[in-house]
Design a binder for these strands. Sequence first.
DNA 1: GTCTATATGATGATAGAC
DNA 2: GTCTATCATCATATAGAC
Lengths: 200, 200
Amino acid sequence: MGGSEQEVRSRGSRAPETRDRIVEATIQLLAREGYGNITTRRIGEVAGVKYQLVHYYFASMEDLFIEAFRRGAEENLARLAEIAKGEASLRRFWQIHSDAGASKLMVEFVALAQRHPALRLEIAAYARRFRTAQLDFARAALERESIASDHIPPMVVLLLTTGLAQLEANDRLLGFTDGHDETRTWIESWLAANTTPVKE
Amino acid sequence: MGGSEQEVRSRGSRAPETRDRIVEATIQLLAREGYGNITTRRIGEVAGVKYQLVHYYFASMEDLFIEAFRRGAEENLARLAEIAKGEASLRRFWQIHSDAGASKLMVEFVALAQRHPALRLEIAAYARRFRTAQLDFARAALERESIASDHIPPMVVLLLTTGLAQLEANDRLLGFTDGHDETRTWIESWLAANTTPVKE
DNA sequence: GTCTATATGATGATAGAC
DNA sequence: GTCTATCATCATATAGAC
């Protein structure tokens, strides 16, 4: 960990990344093992620091969770914005839901949220924001593309696809994936047959 | 799901319902406050018995959860079987997913399952069984009814609707229901327009 | 900033009297 | 079967030395 420091942190204080490491470890632990095993001890272990340091940087676990969630949330919103830059298409819309890792993380955070009211509010606020952005994108895609079948409200498309992503994450949590491939394959081919391709 | 019957509890005279009360309290607590607040002390409180009795009747919390889950699972399977007795229709199929309470309970159990491996296996086994039964029903409905739009594989219909139900339960957990009504209304009217009515 | 030690509290679980 | 009493464990969170 010596070497070159490309940190933009202008405050050249010592140990500039401990806090980041803690946040990263939290996300990583959450993604790998789930909310059930999240403790300060394990976080410290993964981050390579004493677990008491967690309390030095964060007043409470909830604060840490909120910060970790925000980091992931910002990434998701940024990615959505990135995708939204291109031409709106249902195919691109579908891509957003294809990241299994993000879905699982979201499930974990929601689970955590029930024990931490402030985190719950944070997640709820983000979820509504994200959904609104998704809705805009879905609306644009549906308007632009001529869908062969009945016209479907953007909200319906949104909830069905989001629900599917959540279901898959949930199934995986339980340890099975029956029907996932079949459904994804069908959706992909349906999109291929019913929408106009968009070039990158 | 059968197998080892641990206690026969044939002594029906003395305090016959304590065990049931504990199981009921567990389900009730899970439905009301979520997995986060499930402890032996709270269960005892709700059941109106000393919390130590929980350990008298159940070797571990996991055993209690498994029994509680089985009770709910049996009910769900029974209700599905009841619905399946009638003529298969997409409308009836959709009804299965309309019970918000059952969806939330399932979400809670899945959350609990991550801390309790044996419960996870139990739930996974049930989920696959239930899904198979639902799939049969969806297949029968799709075959019987002439759908106006493209033909959709039963598995796709199943995962989309199940996913939607799960999404709604999840949103409610977070405290918002944006788009739920709109989506349900659209689905109901779509079913009304694209399927043949079934008389009770 | 990081360490060692510790306070404080809740939990699942058990022992033994009645 | 139900009670009181208690245990060991693990959690979050602090205090204070360096």
